[in-house]
């Protein structure tokens, strides 16, 4: 055949062009089949909730359901806040001061996603070695600020995006 010196032929070029276009087209065609598994629009639409916190006394907590997950809303006692703030940051596997985990001026309200950062179980409140939360699945201990202190979990309990609409209402998400 009519060679080009380097041995490549017109047919070689056509094979590569066909293969390349086939690969691009195949990936493009595969994308809808992958993407369909991501959250659908109705699931995404349920992205925020408003919770009335007026009935939660000091030392009480509630669980609200947000995006299918529990959100812990705890009205902390002054002792719990003091305990959380007395811990040196060097003692924490995931160092973060308590002040960063609450809204300034509302330091008694601790709001976090109640899902263990290890494998997703729901920790039990006011248990464990640090008076915070304890995950029964694989034994992670969290303190009164929801920070990981002991056990296999890698991170502190997540704090969701939230804001106080007024003194009695918090909007999560």
């Amino acid at each position: 055949m009519a060679g080009h010196g380097d041995g490549a032929t017109r047919r070689d070029f056509l094979y590569i062009a066909l293969g390349g276009m086939g690969a691009v087209g195949g990936l493009a065609a595969a994308w809808p089949f992958v993407s369909q598994m991501n959250p659908s629009k109705d699931v995404l639409a349920l992205s925020s909730i408003e919770v009335d916190i007026s009935g939660i006394e000091v030392g009480q907590s509630i669980k609200a359901s947000w995006r299918g997950k529990p959100v812990f809303i705890r009205h902390r006692t002054p002792e719990e806040v003091a305990e959380a703030r007395a811990v040196p940051l060097d003692d924490l596997p995931d160092p973060q001061p308590d002040q960063e985990r609450v809204k300034a001026g509302r330091d008694e309200w601790l709001i976090m996603v109640g899902v263990c950062t290890h494998f997703g179980c729901i920790p039990l409140g006011q248990q464990g070695e640090y008076g915070g939360w304890f995950c029964p699945c694989h034994g992670s201990h969290y303190d009164t600020s929801g920070r990981i202190r002991k056990g296999p979990a890698p991170r502190n309990l997540d704090v969701p995006h939230y804001e106080f609409l007024d003194d009695n209402t918090v909007k999560i998400g």
Binding site: M37, N38, P39, V43, G68, K69
Partner: peptide, 11 residues
């Protein structure tokens, strides 16, 4: 992506 949501649920 595996869940089709933000927790294990109907999807």
């Amino acid at each position: 992506w595996l869940w089709g949501g933000f927790a294990v649920d109907n999807p």
